[in-house]
Design a protein around this nucleic acid. Structure first.
Lengths: 219, 219
DNA sequence: CGGAGGGTTGATTCCCCTCAAAATCAGTGG
DNA sequence: CCACTGATTTTGAGGGGAATCAACCCTCCG
């Protein structure tokens, strides 16, 4: 069923937005390779990154369901996606209720992720926040074979981290140094290396149950 | 269709959790009267309130869809709810695809709300954050006839505000005083009064488009 | 070879936290 | 009717974490 949806394959270059805040009648995409991020801009130019998307993730699902996009999406690296037209998706829901249930499950999982980010911003200090973020990303990448408890390749800049964690880029740099010198985690030259995974997990109170869902409910 | 789901009516007293983090196979509820809040606890005892629910809102939808609850729900005041059993909801999805689409839309709207809270925590200072929060609540209450641009009744304590906004209760108190003395908004004795709505909206960069959705897409 | 993007470091400032103590208020039982 | 208790709000003093401002470095690339 899903295969019939995989329509057009497209590529986008790093830095040029796929979706703009306020845009309507948008298509959704499934990310085939590369990384992207979804973010919101404030009027004064500040931005908050809501989440990063890695291969296998949906892009812009909420934009389709709400008819209008409340956020922008930027490719972090060059990316390949397969486009899913809104109309096709809706038709598929009507013909295959279980697909709707599956998408509902996926949307809930996304929301659980955003909720955990909210906790991260609201109640953890900068070092815990950074650690939790890097661990979460590692776990997600592991699930699709792109990482392990040793580490992973990571195309993000320190500016990306700052905008995701609600910190300044300068402070991100200091926190990374602190974590590196403490022998906990190293972020350098496009790679994240976990120097002491277990200590990191305790330090950040990292409890991954919110991302390890059993899969869609059996309707 | 929805009416057949409205099963048991139940009441809960303020302060005693309806749903516990980690609980599985939970029912969902529709809030008939009173206020509730969903929150997550950290191991060190801090808590982050994710959202408040007001009459008409769904409670615990995500818990049902994910089989297990990643958050707790506490009644802020005494509340009345109607219980919706998970099994009934799933049956209804199978029989009425449009209902699934509608619930998917509702879930997306909830997520948009959480995303805005994320921006609030990440990129606004305490006064802007407070203002934005009070405006959002006012708008939501207005939609169900419980508020206006003049203000609304609000059962929250300053501790609730602190846990929702990622601040300390002491600082919440100072911010409220500051806003009151600036002639912008008054939070007192269970009432929020907007003293200068337009100035507040500009100050907090409050753009309510993320909550004014047109309704479920027509499948 | 100049420029842009990204990373690093220091000095200073300030927002918000923590600790501490009162004041106010609602409920409760004697 | 009042003493007592606990929850909530208020205010002050002091400290610290992160922001801001300002350089400087490096690498890559047209």
């Amino acid at each position: 069923m899903l295969d019939t949806l995989h329509e057009r394959r497209r590529t986008f270059v790093a830095g040029r937005d796929l979706v703009h805040q306020g845009q309507s009648d948008q298509a959704a995409y499934i990310l085939a390779s590369g990384w992207a991020c979804s973010y919101k801009l404030l009027q004064d130019g500040q931005r908050q990154i809501v989440d990063f998307q890695i291969p296998g993730d949906f892009l812009g699902l909420r934009s389709v369901l709400l008819h209008v996009s409340d956020h922008s999406i930027e490719p972090v690296s060059d990316i390949e996606v397969t486009e899913v037209l809104a109309s096709d998706l809706l038709d598929a829901f009507a013909r295959t209720p279980r697909l709707a249930a599956a998408v509902l499950w996926a949307a809930s999982r996304d929301e659980a992720m955003v909720v955990e980010h909210l906790v991260n911003l609201g109640r953890r200090n900068s070092a815990e926040r950074m650690t939790h973020f890097l661990l979460e990303l590692g776990r997600r990448l592991s699930l699709v074979g792109l990482g392990s408890k040793a580490g992973y390749a990571c195309p993000l800049t320190q500016y990306h981290l700052a905008d995701a964690l609600g910190l300044s880029a300068v402070h991100v740099n200091r926190v990374l140094r602190q974590l590196r010198e403490a022998g906990m985690v190293t972020f350098r030259e496009g790679f994240v290396t976990f120097d002491d995974y277990d200590r990191l997990a305790v330090f950040a109170q990292f409890d991954p149950t919110y991302m390890d869902q059993k899969g869609p409910l059996l309707a």
